[in-house]
Design a protein around this nucleic acid. Structure first.
Lengths: 205, 205
DNA sequence: GTCTATAGGTGGATAGAC
DNA sequence: GTCTATCCACCTATAGAC
């Protein structure tokens, strides 16, 4: 039952926000009463915190899987973006991105848990970016940590806007470009004139 | 009085979200009763729509001012980012970014008005990017429209995350990097090896 | 325009029977 | 564990006096 409650609440939180749904909404979907929900999660703050913890945990496992299955940094990033893409395809917003918007109204335990999620995210991404840069497989300006923050922000923001247009493709094309921006040759592809210079000088080598 | 109501409501909406404040909150700040607010804005949907319209209008005027005062695309972009930065320095989130998160719960008139804001934003940004690219002053991969969407998303997302950490500098360093990413030389600066190649080949010309 | 008063509804949460 | 019943606070919104 615990999981069914979390499933329903998660979907509501991802589409309507934490302040956008009530125990009554969850109860209706599960065909139980509000009181029985309070048995499992005494307060809404408890429910909210559990949502983040489970989401964080699922995400962490997914990152471990990627780490285990992919060798190249580029492939890891591709898989990372696919995690967000899967959320969008379900017509949802990233749970934590949604909660970040409501941050000021959240109970303190939820605020703390939320930061833990983004911290873990940033650490993983920065590590991938760093190693990819070392191998010459990825190219970007600034530090890996800095770039990790830019990426997370850009992905969350892209989801936010895509939902406003009810158009997942909007997110997908943005995500694709963000990945391309990190490939070494693309870093110069933006300027056709200079690219020609680079290509000719490459032949010269 | 109309403006005072909008001022108070705007601040609340930008910090707590549209579902995160009530007529009572606004009334308390202005030392009036809820009933007198309903005289000016019969329903909360009316108030919300007025918020977006005014915000959009203010933003549009700011863009016109930039257009009038700045010549170079790079300077226009810098000023554009400063508009977001000013919001962050007030410990607020972009009103429309906030509302985008709550999109699913908003009354239809607000949803429509919200899209108009982002559309106008994208058009202006795309035009600046396009002309900057033509002049060789800016460099980026993909279409100008595409890049405009990436930029808006990245800025909104960066605000979202910075607020979670209560740290405006987080936004500022991201914004700065996003601008740098658009400069022609920086597009290759990401890869030190290649940069050396470009620089040497430049001399060769 | 602003007030008092209030309606009608929904929010989260609890008591106690089964 | 789930139910019925209920509490109280708060929500949006309206009526009508001043």
């Amino acid at each position: 039952m615990l999981q069914r409650i979390l499933d329903a609440a998660e979907e509501l939180a991802q589409t309507r926000g934490f302040n956008g749904f009530s125990y009554a909404d969850v109860a209706e979907r599960l065909l139980v009463t509000k009181a029985s929900l309070h048995y499992h999660f005494p307060s809404k703050a408890d429910l909210g915190r559990a949502l983040i913890v489970r989401y964080h945990d699922t995400f962490a496992r997914a990152l471990e899987t990627i780490e285990r299955q992919e060798e190249k940094a580029q492939d890891k990033l591709r898989r990372y973006v696919l995690l967000y893409d899967a959320v969008m395809r379900n017509d949802r917003m990233c749970l934590c991105g949604m909660l970040a918007a409501e941050y000021a109204t959240l109970p303190t335990p939820m605020q703390d848990e939320l930061r833990l999620f983004f911290d873990a995210n940033e650490r993983w991404l920065a590590a991938v970016l760093e190693s990819g840069q070392r191998d010459g497989e990825l190219a970007f300006a600034g530090s890996a940590k800095q770039r990790a923050r830019i990426m997370t922000g850009a992905l969350e923001g892209a989801m936010l806007l895509a939902r406003t247009y009810g158009d997942g493709r909007r997110f997908q094309s943005t995500a694709k470009q963000l990945l391309t921006d990190l490939t070494p040759d693309a870093s110069c592809a933006s300027n056709p004139q200079r690219r020609r210079v680079v290509e000719s000088s490459r032949k010269a080598l």
